[in-house]
């Protein structure tokens, strides 16, 4: 019994080491935060849209699942995912809507003119309030919203071909069927 007592520090340390090992698992980013908005109704918005008279409004988008991508011309990682977004829009006919987060409309327009426009429509969120309502903490962020306006998934940082294949497209397909 008394000996067990002296074993205690070792046991505590081993448990601790176990936790450390789990924390070191690959593909685990401590900086990435889960969204608090998952399975909650998307915050409503009605934004002036870029180069278009029709505003980008949540209510108008409901009915079919869709994807919202927060981007900005000043955001470097956004450039990384841009070709992928182009491909998704052209090949997979992704229902992709853009929200230009804290960006000057002219700059966003120039970006899309230079690199191509993957979005069906782009809303202008110059003061970042819609982003704040969504819980955006960095761009790019991508949200999958179902037909009833519930947020089903958030991707933080640039999308990759892998996450698109394995997560985004299957989810959309599933939402489209149900």
């Amino acid at each position: 019994m008394r000996r067990l007592f002296y074993l205690l520090p070792l046991v505590v340390f081993m448990v601790l080491a176990g936790y450390f090992l789990v924390s070191l698992r690959p593909a685990h980013d401590v900086h990435e935060l889960p969204s608090a908005m998952i399975e909650k109704p998307a915050p409503t918005f009605d934004l002036a849209s870029l180069g278009d008279d029709k505003p980008l409004a949540l209510d108008a988008l409901k009915g079919h699942p869709f994807v919202i991508n927060f981007f900005a011309s000043w955001c470097v990682p956004c450039r990384v995912e841009h070709p992928l977004l182009m491909r998704l829009a052209q090949q997979d006919h992704l229902p992709l809507y853009g929200i230009a987060y804290k960006d000057k409309p002219a700059d966003s327009a120039r970006l899309l003119a230079t690199f191509g426009d993957p979005y069906r429509q782009v809303g202008i969120d110059q003061d970042g309030r819609v982003g704040l309502n969504f819980g955006v903490y960095g761009v790019p962020e991508t949200y999958v919203i179902d037909g009833t306006g519930i947020i089903r998934k958030r991707f933080v940082g640039p999308l990759t071909a892998e996450t698109v294949e394995k997560e985004l497209l299957p989810l959309l397909k599933q939402l489209g069927q149900s």
């Binding site: 000996r3 002296y6 074993l7 520090p9 080491a17 450390f20 070191l24």
Partner: peptide, 28 residues
């Protein structure tokens, strides 16, 4: 860098685990 993390964790297990094992054996 995860490699570094793994390496240091290994060091921890050897150094701390080793000394605490010794402690569990000899300290009583």
């Amino acid at each position: 860098d995860p490699t570094r993390g793994t390496f240091i964790l290994l060091l921890l297990v050897v150094a701390i685990g080793g000394s605490l094992t010794l402690y569990a054996i000899r300290a009583p």
